[in-house]
Simulated assay, not measured.
Amino acid sequence: MKILIIDEMHLSIVDLLAKEGHQVDYEPKITREEILQKVQNYEGLVIRSKTPMNRELLEKATQLKFIARAGAGLDQIDLEYLEQKGVKLFHAAKGNRDAVAEHAIGGLLALFNQIVKADSEVRKGIWDREGNRGHELKGKTVGIMGYGNMGKSFAKRLKGFGVEVMAYDKYKRDFEDDSVKEVIWEKVKAEADVLSIHVPLTPETRNFFTYEELKSFAKPFWLINTARGEVINFDTLNRALDEGILRGAVLDVLENEKFQKFDAAQKAAFEKLADRDNVLFSPHVAGWTFESYEKINQVLVKSIKKAFL
């Protein structure tokens, strides 16, 4: 097949696809306008998140047989249209699930032990032991929302910490094992000391975490979000932190990740959030390790090969 790659990828993707007999055009700097002009010539598209795979684009892709998404999120893809046209969709959650799990653990431990604050102070000559007293993870109850590739990998990483791990997934059943206890959402809200979010962005999950939802948790808790920022907005985070509903947060994703496109209200809310010692940020890199960068290619090529034997 003739395949167009429109985003930056680990260059191994070209050789992996070529070895399977495909003709590959690697054009990471291509613009949306250029994609629209030439997409009708390709049977496969390999993408990240450069541009939405919406009806405008897909209707021009008259020969398209598959889209391969180098990542987990599918919220920028018109899934209904692909299903109607019989276009296959592959994604690479298995390629970066370990990276996401390790990042979530690292962020949680850094937050519990005030690593960022302590490091900053010591560099300034401040030796404040009491002000940097930490919390132990052992003995805590960790709740997981969403038990797909990411949630399951996160649960496995927690096994050695002496914590109780429980997970809720609206669309999965009978997944309980020695890593996790399967529970209803109300059970998570009643017992969690930590909540880690591992759900895709859908109309159902967008802004799911309202102030009222957070307030309905039985006790203050720490929040980890390595999924999608749009599940909770800045104002809700600030209010919950102000009122002690949240004890802290690890945020790899934000409701708006383009700082230059903040409106005045978002800018003020983000600045307030960023001024907090009990909030840790990273720029949507939880699944973006040197290892996952290459593993994602292997997962995608394997899926393509299996589907078109």
Rank of each mutant, 00 (worst) to 15 (best):
M1E: 11
L11S: 12
S12L: 12
L16F: 04
A18C: 09
K19E: 14
G21H: 14
G21L: 12
H22F: 13
V24H: 10
D25L: 13
D25H: 14
R32E: 08
R32I: 05
K38D: 04
V39M: 04
N41A: 12
N41M: 05
L45E: 09
L45W: 12
K50E: 08
L57D: 01
E59W: 01
E59Q: 05
T62H: 05
I67L: 05
A68R: 05
D75S: 03
I77H: 00
Y81S: 04
Y81D: 03
L82Y: 01
K85D: 00
V87Y: 00
K88R: 08
L89M: 00
N96S: 06
A99G: 13
A101W: 04
I105F: 10
L108N: 11
L109Q: 10
L111A: 07
N113K: 15
Q114K: 15
K124N: 15
R129H: 01
G134S: 13
K140R: 15
V142M: 07
G148F: 05
G148R: 07
N149K: 09
K152Q: 13
K156N: 14
L158C: 12
F161M: 13
G162W: 08
D177T: 06
D177E: 04
S179K: 14
K181G: 06
E182S: 15
V183R: 11
E186I: 05
E186V: 07
V188P: 13
E191M: 08
D193H: 12
S196H: 11
L201P: 00
F208Y: 15
K215C: 05
K215Q: 14
A227V: 03
R228D: 00
E230C: 00
E230A: 10
I232R: 01
D235W: 00
N238L: 06
N238Y: 02
R239I: 08
D242N: 14
A249Y: 05
V253G: 04
V253D: 03
E255A: 07
F259V: 12
K261M: 10
F262Y: 13
F262C: 04
A264M: 11
A268T: 13
F270S: 07
A274C: 03
D277E: 15
S282K: 05
P283D: 12
A286K: 02
W288H: 05
E291W: 05
E291H: 08
E291I: 06
K295S: 12
K295C: 07
L300K: 11
V301A: 10
S303Y: 08
K306H: 13
A307G: 06
L309F: 06
L309G: 11
L309P: 14
